[in-house]
Simulated assay, not measured.
Amino acid sequence: MNILVIGATGDVGSEAAKIAVAKGHKVRALVRSTSNRDKLGEAKSKIEFFEGDILDKTSLEPAMKGIDALIISIRLTPGEIKKGRKYEDVELTGVNNLVEVAKKNGVKKIIHVTAVGVGPQSVSDMYMAKHQSEETIRNSGIGYTIFKPSGMFKDFQFFHVPNVLKMGEAAKWPFGPVTFHMNPLSHVDLAKCMVDALTNPKSANKSLEIGGPDCITQGDLLNMIAKEAGIKANYTEGVSKEQLIEMVKANPQKSFFTAEQIKDFMNDTILDHKGIKDIFGIEFQHVSDFVKKAVPAVKAAMAKQQGK
Rank of each mutant, 00 (worst) to 15 (best):
E80F: 10
S33T: 15
A8L: 07
V239S: 03
A20G: 08
Q243D: 14
G176F: 08
E260D: 14
L60S: 03
I276Y: 00
K299F: 04
S35Q: 06
N200F: 08
G275N: 09
G84T: 00
D264C: 07
K104Y: 09
E100H: 09
K109H: 12
P201Y: 11
H286G: 06
G211S: 09
I270Y: 08
V248T: 14
R75W: 10
S14T: 10
E15Y: 12
E237G: 08
D125R: 10
S140K: 12
A301M: 04
P78F: 02
I262Y: 02
H187R: 13
K192F: 06
F256K: 12
A301Q: 04
D264K: 04
D268E: 06
T145K: 02
L60M: 08
H187T: 15
F175S: 11
D272I: 10
E61I: 15
A226E: 00
T114W: 04
I225T: 03
R28C: 08
E260N: 08
L244C: 05
K39I: 06
E48H: 12
K148F: 06
N223A: 12
D220W: 09
E169Q: 15
E169M: 11
R85T: 01
Q285P: 04
V295L: 12
D53S: 11
E51V: 14
E91A: 06
P201A: 10
P162A: 05
A16E: 03
K154I: 11
I19R: 07
S133D: 01
F49V: 09
V161I: 07
V116T: 13
F175E: 06
F175H: 14
E15F: 13
K82V: 02
L190R: 01
V164E: 00
F256Q: 11
G24T: 11
M126G: 03
S33M: 10
G275I: 05
E283V: 13
Q121P: 02
I72S: 00
F290Y: 14
K227T: 13
G41F: 09
V90F: 03
A171T: 15
K26C: 09
G238T: 05
P78S: 02
A69S: 15
R37Y: 04
E134V: 07
P184N: 12
K44I: 14
S33Y: 10
G7Q: 01
I72P: 00
T258G: 10
D272H: 10
V12N: 00
S124N: 07
